[in-house]
Design a protein around this nucleic acid. Structure first.
Lengths: 168, 168
DNA sequence: ATTGCTATTGAGACTTAATCTCAATTTCAT
DNA sequence: ATGAAATTGAGATTAAGTCTCAATAGCAAT
């Protein structure tokens, strides 16, 4: 008996609800995924296609549960298990980025054709603000080089209150 | 029926097992905690003392489960619930730092009298390497200022392979 | 198109970190 | 010493994520 979406969405994670992106622009992500799968001897199934499409329809951060519900609402059928199995693949082939927040859940966002970026997370309203600092990136590389640490990815998240919530 | 410590400790989180710190130096953390509790109308119980002492005996990162077992081994009796309840207090009064890793668990470390720092986490052996970059700190402040974001804390974690694991 | 091997799926059981419950106990200001 | 209020612990509960396995679907070769 799943009991999700209970305490969730109570005003949090409202964010700047951007409109969904039209699926027309940039179809190439499917090719990227297809190639990746083929190389690993995996199959491009109906479910994986649905998930891929849906990921690229979101232009915002999303969590898996929200994502599952959205797919369900559209009448498409993909199980939670498949989503949990497919997202790591999308991560692995670089189409999706994973953001671990301090809360228990992880959030995802597609990154194909987007720059890597980090996040400011408002602890009051849940808004996620993106930023990118080439200087910070460079410093991180420097730190890794000095310690002969082979960096694969990083998470930089600054938590606090956004200007709207700070004044209130 | 708790079934913990099952898949854990299989070589991971080995880290640089520093010797435990003698409890003699820097007793003041107890005063800090006591004052904090008093201010909030909370009580300094036996359990909280045990937890505090144990936290400051560790000079390394630790997770709650490991921590619970260590206390138990010493014959001291503190329930898991109390640990889960006390650590947030230690966090709140600034005696302890929480490090969310990409794995599901959180790790903790005491920070009283220590500088804030960030982490390199080795995905193979689990080792946690600390670093501190004033330049990065400054850049972060700059980013927040520009967006009128009131920063409370941040997490910067670079994941990859440490020099030992990268060569293997 | 058919075949056959293999990857994949979905429903639901399972795992596990973390939280909650509540009666019994402890702290501490008075 | 006393009593109001906070705290504790054992165990139930929650919820994210993983696993199982029989049924199904992709796809390369024919």
């Amino acid at each position: 008996m799943r009991k999700r979406r209970e305490t969730k969405k109570t005003g949090r994670r409202a964010g700047s609800a951007r409109p969904e992106r039209s699926p027309a622009q940039g179809e190439d992500y499917e090719a990227v995924f297809r190639d990746f799968l083929q190389e690993k001897g995996l199959k491009l199934t109906r479910e994986r296609k649905v998930i891929l499409e849906e990921v690229f329809r979101h232009d915002d951060h999303f969590d898996i549960d929200e994502f599952y519900l959205k797919i369900k609402q559209k009448g498409l059928k993909v199980s939670r298990a498949s989503i949990y199995r497919t997202l790591p693949l999308l991560l692995e082939c670089g189409l999706v980025d994973e953001v671990k927040t301090t809360e228990r859940q992880a959030f995802y966002e597609h990154i194909h054709g987007r720059r890597h970026h980090d996040h400011l997370v408002c602890l009051s309203c849940g808004k996620v603000i993106e930023f990118y600092s080439p200087a910070i990136e460079r410093l991180q590389e420097e730190i890794c080089r000095r310690r002969r640490f082979k960096s694969l990815r990083h998470v930089l998240e600054i938590q606090g209150h956004c200007k709207d919530c700070a004044s209130a």
